[in-house]
Computed example of a mutant assay.
Amino acid sequence: MSSKLYVGNLPYSVNDDSLRHNFSEFGNVASAKVMTDRDSGRSKGFGFVEMASEAEAQAAINGLNGQSVDGRQIVVNVSRPKEGGGGGGYRSNGPRY
C-alpha cells in the first residue's frame, strides 16, 4: 500500500491548509495539495495527501472516507498511478491528404 491518498468530492472551499489540517488528526502529513484549474485558480474538487507512513494513510482512509465536509461526502482512497500514455501535445503521423 502507498502512503499517497486521493481525496475526491471536496467542497470548493477546501484549500491546501484545511486539507492538511483535516488529515493531521490521523498522523504526520508529508504533503497536501488541492488541484486547481490552471486558468481560474478554482478548486477542481479533488486533491492528494501524502502521509508519513502507510499505517497513518490507512488510518486516514478509515477515519475520513465517506465523512461529510461542508455538506459533501468526501472519498478517500489510495492514489493509483495515472494510466495511459498521457494526452495532448503534437504528434505527427505524416501528411494527411
Rank of each mutant, 00 (worst) to 15 (best):
E54Y: 03
N9Y: 14
Q58D: 14
A52K: 15
D17C: 01
D39C: 00
S68M: 13
N62P: 00
Y6W: 07
P81Y: 01
L19I: 02
G89M: 02
K33I: 04
N9F: 12
Y6R: 03
G86H: 08
Y90F: 13
V14L: 13
G87W: 09
S43P: 09
V78H: 15
S2V: 03
Q73V: 09
P11G: 06
A30G: 00
R20S: 12
F46H: 11
L5D: 07
V78Y: 13
A52S: 15
V7T: 07
S18M: 08
G27V: 08
S40Y: 04
V29S: 06
G84Q: 11
N9M: 09
N65I: 00
L10R: 10
S92H: 14
S18T: 14
N28V: 10
S31L: 02
S3P: 01
G47E: 08
A52M: 13
S18P: 00
F26D: 07
S40A: 02
G85Q: 14
G89H: 02
G66A: 04
N77K: 15
M1V: 05
R38E: 08
Q67L: 01
G89F: 01
P95R: 14
A32D: 04
G87C: 02
A52P: 10
P95I: 03
D70V: 01
S53P: 11
G63Q: 06
G86M: 05
G94V: 04
N9R: 15
D39N: 12
Q58W: 02
E83F: 05
L19C: 04
M51L: 09
R38W: 06
V29R: 04
K4F: 00
H21S: 13
E56N: 10
G63Y: 03
A30K: 15
A60M: 07
A60W: 07
R20A: 13
N77H: 12
D17K: 14
G89Y: 02
A59P: 03
K82P: 05
N93V: 03
R72M: 06
M51F: 06
D37A: 03
I61T: 07
R96Q: 14
S43E: 04
S24Y: 04
N65P: 02
G86R: 10
N62Q: 12
N22L: 14
T36A: 05
R80E: 15
G8Y: 10
N22W: 13
E54Q: 15
G71T: 04
P11A: 05
A55H: 13
G84D: 10
N77M: 12
Y97C: 03
D37Q: 05
Q73P: 01
D17I: 03
R80S: 10
A32M: 03
G89L: 02
G47F: 05
N77E: 15
S3M: 04
N62Y: 01
S53V: 06
S92N: 15
D17N: 14
H21A: 12
G84V: 08
G85F: 09
R80P: 00
G66D: 11
D16N: 15
G71E: 09
K33L: 01
E83N: 12
F48R: 09
Q67H: 08
S40M: 02
N93A: 11
G84T: 07
S24K: 11
A60Q: 09
G86W: 06
A57N: 11
D70Y: 07
K44Q: 12
A32V: 00
M51W: 07
R42T: 06
N62C: 01
S3D: 10
M35P: 00
R72V: 00
G87Y: 12
V76H: 08
L19K: 05
V69C: 00
A60S: 10
D39E: 14
R42Y: 10
D16P: 02
